[in-house]
Each structure stands twice: as C-alpha cells, then as structure tokens.
Nucleic acid binder design. Structure first.
Lengths: 335, 335
DNA sequence: GTGAAAGCGCTAACAG
DNA sequence: CTGTTAGCGCTTTCAC
C-alpha cells in the first residue's frame, strides 16, 4: 500500500502547535486549552491520523493487549471459552489478540514466545498442552493465566474446573438410576481429560463397581471409536460417561449407527455443556461449566498478576453442576 | 511483571561489539564473522534476549502480521475458514492475529480500525457484515481481503463462493428426485445468505415451481423456527434447502422433535459442508466449499494487494460441489 | 498553557 | 568485517 500514515508531526503542523502538545491534547491531558484541543482533534480527524501503536509501546514500554491462546480450536467448548474470555477482557478495557495455532506442545511454546516478542501485556491460555519447562520460563516474563490445565508453577495463575466433583456427580447419578455397567470414554492429552478419567475410576471403585475405560483423544472421533469398541466387548455397558461433550456426541452418533437407542439402551452423560448439547436431537445430559464465570476469574487473575506488587498468583477452582436432559434414563431389564 | 527485557545494547555489551552488529548477526546478515556470530548468539541466548517487535516495526515501517477478522465466531464454518486462513498465512511466512469481536457492523469497523492502529500488514475478513463506507476507507490504508462477502469496492480483494451454482445444483437435484414442494430457510444479514435465497427463488421459478421461504438469521435457531413454521403451513414441503449447514441442522433437529423422519418425510440439503455434516447421526447432504482452497486464494490476493505495484485487486469466485448423504431421498407418495 | 529536547529499541546508511 | 550516526513516531521531563 502506498499511502503513508499521518504522524503526530503532520497533525502538529496542521494545527499550528507542537507534537508534544498534540499528544497531550489527543490523550485528554487536562492541561490543554479547550480551543486548542478542538483544533487538534479537527486536524487529526481530517488527516485520518491514527496513533502508531508500535511507537506508543516503544516509549511507554507496556501494552494493554493480552493474547488468548486456544489449545483445541475445533473443540466447541474451547471456542466458547475463548469468546467469553475475549468479552471479559473487553469489559476490562483490554485489547485482545487470539491465536489458534497452539495445537501441540511445540506450537504452544512458539506462540507464547511470539507473545513475548510482541511485548503483550499478558496471556491467557485455554486448555493448551502442558509443557512445564518452557512455559514456566515464559511466565516469568509475561503474566500468564492458564484455564483448565492446572499446574503448580510458581508464576502462573490457574483457573480450573472442579473435575472431580463433576465426575462424581455424574457417575453417582447413573448409579442411583440403577446402572452398574458404566463405561468411560476419555482423551489422554489434556490435563482435564486425565483428571476426569481418574475421577471416574475412583467413583466406580468407591461404589464397588468395575471401571471400564476406552482412551483416545478428546474429540468426536474418539467417541465413535469408543462406543464401537465398548459395545463390542463382552460386558456391554448400559451407561456411558464421556470425558467431554464432543466425545459424548461422537459416541451417541455411533450408537445410533449401531442400532442402539439413547437412552433406552444406553444412557450417556458428557462434560462441558456446549451449546449443541441442549439441542432437541442431542439433548445430552452433561456437567455444566460456566465459561463467563471462569473468564471473569481469569481476567481478575491476570490483573492481580500484572498490577499487584508483589504479583498475586491465584489458583482458582470453579464449581460445576449436573444438567439432566433426555440422554439418561433408569436402567431397565434384568438386574 | 518486574523483569526488564534484555535489549540489543545488553547483548552488544555482553558480546563485546556494537548494537548494529548484533542486529546484523542475529538477523543472519552474511557480512558477519562466524566467530562473532556465534558469540553474539550465545550472549543473546544467555540473556534471554527477544527482539522488541514495536521497535522493529517502528523503524522498518512494515509488519508481516496480518489480522483475521471473523464475522460469526460461533458459526462452525467461519471458524473452519479462520483456521484454514491461519494455516495458509503461516505457510506463507505471515504471523497472524485473530479477532472474534466483529459480530456486527460497528464492531467490525472498530476492529479494522484497531488493525490499522496496530499497523497490521494486512487483514482478511471472514463473512463480516458489509459496511461499505467505513471499510472502503480503511481498505485504502490497509490491504484487505474479504471472504464470502462480495463487494465491488475499488481497493478490496474478494474471494467468494459460487452461491448461485451451488444452490442451483441443490434445487435441481431435489427436483430430479421428484420433489415439488421445496421450501427454503435462510438468513438475511450476511451477503452470502441473501445470494442463496435469491438463487433459490430463481431456480424454483425456472422449474415452474413456487418458492416458499422462511427468513431469519444464519443459525441453528432459525433452522428450528423455520422448520416449525413451514410444517405448520398449508402446503407442507417435502424437501428443504437451508442457507447453511447450521440452519439445516436446526431444521433437522426440529423436524425430529415434531415427529417427521429425514429423509423419509422430508429431504434436507444444506450449504458449507461443515465437519459435523458428515457425522452418522446427521449425514447431511450439502454444498461443499473447500476452505483450504479459498484460504490459499485469499492469501495470494493479499500478497498481490500488498506487494505488487500497482496493487492487483483480485475478485475470485470459488467453485462448489454437491455432496450427497443420507438426508435426501426421492419423493414418495401421491403426486 | 505550551514548546524544546531527550530518549524508548531497533535498523539502515555511511564510514572505516 | 565492524563501529558510528541518524532517525522511525511517540511520550515525557523540564523549561518558559
């Protein structure tokens, strides 16, 4: 593009004053004559002046834009969370910049490093893979908040969901409905997935039942494969607890394909409560996390990390609730 | 955060040379003694040096990061496109920065203006609302490519999908299967939606059939409401053409809720071919757009806009294809 | 109130 | 090959 941007100098010239004064006027500094301010604003307007952020940043050495790094862009829950975080940041007066490239450990670190070069004011990571070493180092130079990843690093704040309690509620509800053969389909990469699988096992053992686990990733495909594998086993489950809604939907999908009915033949409970879970065709029972609440906490944590001195490192655990829809029913048939 | 960043000067001091030479060494300028380069690199490494992008940008007056502005973040197709564009940019050596805030005209303009302040190297807009005036002005200062929005503005490049041909294929296929009462559910905001609705009407009229349209937004909810309304009408349709897959899925959902079977009672065709359309439960016939191809064209257009002189403004139309799945069947019953 | 001057961290000539 | 010099556009003392 050929057009050069108007600079402070251009505006100063047009308004017949100095650059420093234009700067003051434009930023609303009180010590500026109202007439002058009006003149400056008019000049800036007519020249289409836009402050050069690079220059601003260079001199003020701090930015108010924070990066949002999404671990699984295709996971609807992550996206929903990203939007919530974005809105929370906006409400708090931050600019934001989103990255969808952090799909694996290496990429996540690369993104974080980029945020550092950009001299971002801070970063919020949503369900990114957990690479302790590199991240820990970066967190020393940049206020970092991790959502749904855990981590005991010294400098990073975390906002996690109470996986244990959520899973316990789900499994116990299924047990109360008479189910005994409750299987689980989970993913293995993400921290949250691991916690949920562990909590499932504990809840089953606590009830004197035998865990039955299929592990894959944290997506629809895994749900499909898991359903296929579990229903092909010798002890077919009458209920399924999935590590997240995407997995649950994949499983539901495959069950239909195999001729099973939900919930008459198999009950299903997911985790996250993504928008689709509430649709009539799906109507999936699930553990709800409130993304807006989590986002708000994340932003608060970021502020406390960035602006308090010494920095306050918060580690927060968000509550969850069981949402019942049509995908669960009491167990019928022989006991 | 308290830690100050290491600067070129610090590195120069540590390596016993000048800042300019460090700059050269770090950027791989050929005219640097290998020994020196090694020493500089070691020094930079040990100090955890990261170039300050703001300073780099300020002096070189151009950035290689481009903004991706997404119009409907919750529309799976837009997201998929965003990811494709992001990857295409990465392959071309661009950094990228994504914005999810452009949900309406005002916000889209605000985002564009922010990109300008940030001195972005360019911007790619995905299905953002069409505000001609403000955008046109911005496009004069910033290379802009619009995806799926059309627009004849002088300075903006566009990559559009061949809506007319796609819709025609869909409607004609339904007609060939014996359907006569083919209704349409569409959205009104987005340009693409309008084009599809228009194309539907034309295709119907061309076949001597009467159009039957329900208009709302471009989302699942509209699909639901549309299905409800159309099936409550006097001439119940035997086939449905939806403006996009989200609408189609909402409609399918509601049809199930109302006790209709798909495709036995009602055939459905969508538009976009989002991932979910291929799932077994949904198995939605649809018009496929290839996001990777579109993304590649968009990036090429951006380059030609930014680097050719005079700038080349490309207006591209991407082909589509009809993908048949289980949601369509020949019409049965009385003719 | 307003202006002049001194950098922020980096790159790009220009000399050696 | 290497060092010196001069800004990029902006904010911030510090004078007037």
């Amino acid at each position: 593009m050929e057009t050069r941007f108007a600079t402070l100098k251009d505006v100063a010239q047009a308004a017949g004053t100095s650059t420093s004064h234009v700067s003051r006027a434009l930023r609303g500094d009180p010590g500026v004559n109202p007439d002058m301010r009006a003149r400056v604003k008019a000049a800036a307007e007519s020249l289409g002046y836009r402050p050069n952020i690079a220059a601003q940043m260079l001199v003020s050495a701090q930015s108010s834009t924070v990066g949002i790094v999404v671990g699984e862009p295709l996971n609807p829950f992550h996206l929903q969370m990203a939007i919530s975080v974005d809105q929370a940041l906006e409400r708090s007066g931050f600019e934001s910049v989103i990255s969808l490239r952090a799909t694996d450990d290496r990429a996540a670190t690369a993104e974080a490093s980029r945020l550092l070069r950009i001299r971002m004011g801070g970063a919020i990571f949503i369900g990114t893979p957990r690479k302790t070493r590199a991240m820990g180092q970066i967190a020393q130079q940049l206020p970092c908040v991790f959502l749904g990843r855990g981590g005991a690093e010294k400098h990073v704040a975390t906002v996690d969901v109470d996986n244990e309690s959520g899973v316990k509620q789900a499994v116990e509800h299924l047990i109360a409905l008479g189910h005994r053969r409750i299987a689980h389909i989970g993913g293995s990469e993400e921290i949250a997935a691991k916690e949920r699988t562990t909590a499932y096992k504990e809840a089953m053992l606590a009830a004197g039942l035998k865990p039955n686990v299929y592990l894959g990733a944290h997506d629809r495909v895994t749900g499909r494969l898991g359903a296929e594998a579990l229903m092909a086993g010798t002890t077919k489950p009458t209920a399924l607890f999935a590590a997240n809604d995407a997995v649950a939907m994949g499983a539901m999908d495959r069950l239909h394909g195999l001729g099973y009915r939900v919930p008459e033949d198999v009950s299903i409970i997911g985790f996250d409560d993504i928008e689709e879970a509430a649709s009539e065709t799906i109507s999936l029972s699930t553990i709800r996390q409130n993304t807006d609440d989590a986002a708000r906490e994340a932003v608060t944590s970021l502020r406390m990390l960035a602006f308090e001195s010494p920095p306050v490192v918060r580690k927060i655990l968000m509550p969850v609730s069981l949402v019942l829809r049509r995908s669960v029913a009491p167990r019928v048939g022989r006991r």
